[in-house]
Design a binder for these strands. Structure first.
Lengths: 229, 229
DNA sequence: TCAAAAGTGTTATGGTTACACCCATGA
DNA sequence: TCATGGGTGTAACCATAACACTTTTGA
């Protein structure tokens, strides 16, 4: 089977930058390539866009196929289309970034025996294609957006402590925050529900758990409220 | 001549949302389509990406070919790839937005006899494809970005008065601003060069002219300075 | 009892907001 | 002389930043 067109067309792919957070640092997920070009190099999960699916559907499908990740925050990042970004053929890729919480998602290696692994964003391996540039773009976006949209919560479990939340911001923004000021500010927004529940299994005083109130955020946002760290 | 591939490929285009500002309001540029689908409808300037040009190059080329506009602020906006956004074929489009100052650019109708015209963004004509959605996305981006990047100056002549600048922000943000506070804030940033020159040909007291200091902005930005209206 | 993190208020500072009048110019 | 926009300062208010000790818990 083959497909013929009057004018040449670039190939179109999607690639996903998947961020996760553990108690150490911010991580990003890569897949080991099985085939040339860049065989054995690490690369972003991604693949060709099919004719019967939208770009976001393609990104979600690839994410599921290659990493088993489903139902996550996913947002279009940028489209990379330099002529020589793929050495063989003209390939334009629409990049997405995803935020997942590592404690509630299990990443399995891909179906086709390539393996998947998390790397600290600060210290990624050598990557295929222009994927280092895509990663840098995604990081910049995350760093910018986390301050004025409450997307950080996507990286935490549903129930979290204020210290976890603060650490998240400190990690992403790469700057320390004052504990009291942080709590005052975040609680002042009234977007967190204080649960009747404490941390368990910690070797020190257990912290209170909170939940992000998406419904309330949607309401406030409509009234002109702006989240701002 | 024809081109054959093993798997089907979407067609790839670029479209440009071109913003301009006159003394009335914010305007956007459309081209009258000559051919189906949507013959005679207004549409964004744009066209197919060639194999030997990057996406931004394609956008600049189309802009030049269809409107005569050159050397303007141009930034990638978003990529639209819904399956049925073009009724004939699968077409994915990478949208860009451009900011130009109407007083220093002459928009000519396109080479191929379609005509081009400016419309108020608040009252656009009925548009081809999903171009209304693209316009809405561009407006949202402009409105958001103008507050924390000094891109508004791209819409003004090189030399402008503080009142023009204020009106620009009031128009884009759709809210009135206090004159004294606005001046205090914008002058406080030290990004404007006060010229030894006044407005001419106005039927009232002539206002002082200013110029944006791009060089200084680049310096300050590097040192961690953030423009913020 | 010790280590480790949780939790909690106050003060100083700086930026934002609100607000009204005189000035210069050309018609 | 009138109409039109140009240009200017101050005070109240609010948000941010800096800062240290007590509490709880499990080991």
């Amino acid at each position: 089977m083959s497909y013929t067109y009057e004018f040449p067309r670039p190939a179109l792919t999607v690639d996903c930058v998947v961020f996760g957070l553990d108690d150490r640092d911010l991580k990003v997920l890569f897949i080991r390539r099985g085939i040339p070009p860049f065989a054995d190099r690490w690369a972003l999960p991604g693949g060709f866009v099919r004719m019967d699916e939208s770009l976001e559907e393609a990104a979600r499908r690839e994410l599921l196929e290659e990493t088993g990740v489903e139902q996550v925050f996913l947002e279009q990042l940028y489209t990379f289309g330099d002529v020589k970004r793929d050495p063989r053929d003209r390939v334009v890729t629409v990049a997405y970034y995803a935020l997942i919480n590592l404690s509630e998602h299990n990443i399995h290696a891909a179906t086709d025996a390539k393996d998947a692994a998390w790397f600290p964003v600060a210290d990624p391996p050598k990557l295929a294609f222009d994927h280092d540039r895509i990663l840098a773009t995604a990081l910049a976006r995350l760093k910018g957006k986390v301050r004025y949209e409450p997307i950080g919560f996507e990286l935490l479990p549903q129930k979290f402590t204020l210290s976890q939340l603060q650490k998240l911001y400190e990690t992403i923004l790469e700057q320390p925050l004052d504990k009291r000021n942080f709590r005052k500010k975040i609680l002042g927004m009234q977007l967190l529900v204080e649960l009747d529940e404490l941390q368990s299994d910690v070797p020190h005083r257990a912290a209170r758990l909170y939940q992000f109130d998406e419904h309330k955020y949607a309401q406030l946002k409509q009234k002109g409220f702006n989240f701002e760290l």
